[in-house]
Simulated scan of single mutants.
Amino acid sequence: MAFKELGALLDAGLPLPIGGKTYTVPPPSAKTGLRVQNVMQAAATAAGGGKVSDAVLDDAAELDLYRDVLGTAYAEMIADGVKWPALKHCAMTAVAWIIQDEDAAERYWNSGGDPSQLAPNRATRRASSGTESSTRSRGSTSSTTRRQGKSGSGKKRPRRG
């Protein structure tokens, strides 16, 4: 078996429909992909209370990042007068595509950016996995409580001779 040409496998781009028009975000350059990974790592570090360089996450860097991840679709969106919330949503969808895959990008897109919509609720997970059951699980059979003696201290009293 021979390897297929990689460009034919990965160069499809990401189609994003807005207001009856579909914008195609081209695959990012390696430099942009690495930068997105770096920014996302910095964001995770900052969210965890770690120290991050302000230059990584400042407003200008954010706009540059949006332009970079959207590629040629960025200028097309600006020329068409796409509103800021839509442009930002497109950029964050592209980020999800770059750091994960097209399925993650589609989930983000369809959630409207609402994090609570990204993870299915428990009932949905159970129904889709086929593990929902009417049988209740058994409770724990181990015990961490100690029997207490008459004194209530939990210690044995010495015997009197």
Score class of each variant (00 low, 15 high):
residue 2 A to R: 09
residue 2 A to V: 14
residue 4 K to I: 10
residue 4 K to E: 15
residue 4 K to P: 04
residue 6 L to E: 08
residue 6 L to W: 14
residue 6 L to A: 13
residue 8 A to V: 12
residue 8 A to M: 12
residue 9 L to R: 14
residue 9 L to Q: 15
residue 10 L to A: 14
residue 10 L to Q: 11
residue 11 D to E: 13
residue 12 A to S: 14
residue 14 L to T: 03
residue 14 L to A: 04
residue 15 P to F: 11
residue 16 L to S: 01
residue 19 G to I: 00
residue 21 K to D: 01
residue 21 K to G: 02
residue 23 Y to I: 02
residue 24 T to G: 03
residue 26 P to V: 04
residue 29 S to Y: 09
residue 29 S to F: 12
residue 29 S to V: 05
residue 30 A to T: 15
residue 30 A to K: 15
residue 31 K to F: 12
residue 32 T to P: 05
residue 33 G to I: 03
residue 36 V to A: 12
residue 40 M to C: 15
residue 41 Q to M: 14
residue 43 A to E: 11
residue 44 A to N: 13
residue 49 G to M: 06
residue 50 G to F: 13
residue 55 A to G: 09
residue 56 V to S: 07
residue 57 L to Q: 00
residue 58 D to H: 05
residue 63 L to Q: 15
residue 64 D to K: 15
residue 64 D to T: 15
residue 65 L to Y: 03
residue 65 L to P: 02
residue 66 Y to G: 11
residue 66 Y to L: 11
residue 66 Y to R: 12
residue 67 R to P: 01
residue 70 L to Y: 02
residue 70 L to Q: 02
residue 71 G to C: 03
residue 73 A to R: 00
residue 75 A to D: 14
residue 78 I to P: 00
residue 83 K to P: 00
residue 86 A to I: 00
residue 89 H to E: 06
residue 90 C to M: 11
residue 94 A to W: 04
residue 95 V to K: 02
residue 97 W to Y: 12
residue 98 I to A: 02
residue 99 I to H: 04
residue 100 Q to M: 11
residue 104 A to T: 14
residue 104 A to V: 13
residue 105 A to I: 06
residue 106 E to N: 10
residue 107 R to T: 11
residue 107 R to V: 12
residue 107 R to S: 06
residue 108 Y to I: 05
residue 109 W to K: 05
residue 109 W to Y: 14
residue 111 S to P: 00
residue 112 G to D: 10
residue 112 G to S: 07
residue 113 G to C: 04
residue 114 D to C: 01
residue 115 P to W: 03
residue 116 S to P: 02
residue 118 L to R: 06
residue 119 A to F: 07
residue 119 A to W: 04
residue 121 N to I: 02
residue 124 T to L: 13
residue 130 G to H: 06
residue 131 T to D: 10
residue 132 E to C: 00
residue 133 S to H: 09
residue 134 S to F: 05
residue 134 S to Q: 07
residue 137 S to M: 10
residue 140 S to N: 09
residue 141 T to S: 06
residue 143 S to H: 07
residue 147 R to Y: 07
residue 149 G to L: 03
residue 150 K to F: 08
residue 153 S to E: 04
residue 154 G to I: 03
residue 154 G to T: 01
residue 156 K to V: 08
residue 157 R to N: 05
residue 158 P to V: 06
residue 160 R to L: 10
residue 160 R to N: 10
residue 160 R to Y: 10
